[in-house]
Nucleic acid binder design. Sequence first.
RNA 1: GCUCCCUUCGUCUAGAGGCCCAGGACAUAGCCCUCUCAAGGCUGUAACACCGGUUCGAAUCCGGUAGGGAGCGCCA
Length: 473
Amino acid sequence: MSAAAIATAPPVSRFAPSPTGELHLGNARTALFNLLLARHSGGRFLLRIEDTDPGRSLETHAQALLADLRWLGLDWDAGPDCEDERGPYRQSQRGALYARNLARLEQQGAVYPCFCTPEELELSRRAQRAAGRPPRYDGTCRGLDAVERARRAAAGRGASLRFRVPQGARLEFTDFVHGPQSFLSDDIGDFIVRRADGSAAFLFANAVDDASMGVSQVLRGEDHLTNTPRQLLILGSLGLPAPAYGHVALIVGADGAPLSKRHGAVSVREYRERGYEPQALVNHLFRLGHASALHGLATLAEMAAAFDAAHLGRAPARFDEQQLAVWQRDVVRRLSPAAARSWLAPVLPPGLDADAAEALAAALLPNLTLPADARPWIEIVFGGPPPLTESAAALVRGAGAAYFAAAAAAAAAHGDDLAAIAAAVRAATGRRGAELYMPLRAALTGLEHGPELAPLLRAMPPGKAHERLARFA
RNA sequence: GCUCCCUUCGUCUAGAGGCCCAGGACAUAGCCCUCUCAAGGCUGUAACACCGGUUCGAAUCCGGUAGGGAGCGCCA
């Protein structure tokens, strides 16, 4: 393939989570950016499940991961549930490929068996730290000869396979987010590519898979930046093509510290359960660590068109729930009546019919961020006569009995029609504007602030308005 | 400890030596509109972490300091 052909080939990106827990906000953003990267140029976006660690990988987590990604609207072109010829897309099913490539490394002498036990390694690391040195593999098994290896193997000691990192070499690559990077190979210890149980280690499986799946761009978290030279070493020994690597800074909490449980929700699931809309979450994540000229709510297609890897940020971005709430309100206000009804469903009184639910949603939506915010209003709409705040009570007293006599009579005659009630009160009292409406609001809701009165009245069960107005007549 | 990464308004960011006494969006404040809140319209407040150097000129280049983060795992 010529250089020009490579340059114009559509990109292939991927998201490669390991099913050891829930989909984290940071990973969700990584998935989003990779999807956008591919879609921007008509490329392909792959989903690969990295379940090489059987002890920590759970099928339920894998399923939840797919469900969360789908909920966000992030669809993949190939993955564990839609295989193609580059698959399978679960690392646990790619053992043969790893074994083949591992064998090639063994033939070249690029790797060597290591008989050190985890305990020995831990001890060595501790000693190095104590001596003020970087904790790296000390090379115990690096120079073992065939006889010695055979003896240890015969003694039943399981062996892992380590990559023989060249000494005195400078490892360079260009990160498409951070620019030129340079590492000294001497700062990298010989690392494990195959565990003693025969399974492939992350560094190895991940790199080999990217190459064999034709991934052209690897956009991942900055925690992998220093892994990159290792993976380049592996790929180089195997003669496999290396993708372009780009690393985005991790997302941090509102206080600038790494996102953790103490920041509250950190998983996509938690936001979904609290009633956040996927479009709100995606819009917020899109602006974190990425700049575009896009303003206002955008669709994934619009984001893809606007996405530009050159505008990926290098500094950690704060996940600020206040900003998320802005997007959320924007999305909520645009919900269709049917969508609004199901969004609100978790807090709706049981047995409420569809029409009543839609009327309620229509009244409340402009004032809500999350379904839970509707609770006090639902109590006001469906519960008993609400207690008045002090200032609401003052408003009611100021209006007087004649005012409410007129209002109650109109409510009895016209039900939930605010215009009719207001007209009657105006005729009886000559009041207009706030003077006219505020006592009605106070008597009906007990408060001075809230959603528009007219739709609120329409959401109330018949007779409620009259009952509440009549108590002051 | 060693290596690497990062640092522009409250937040997300634009900015690749003069176009920047730093632009946009969101948030926020005031005004208008309005039955309140929200929405909408208008106006405003608000930042180059710090110290040196290079240069006629630095947010932009170089060095250092401080602060934050990551990696150094038979985790990924």
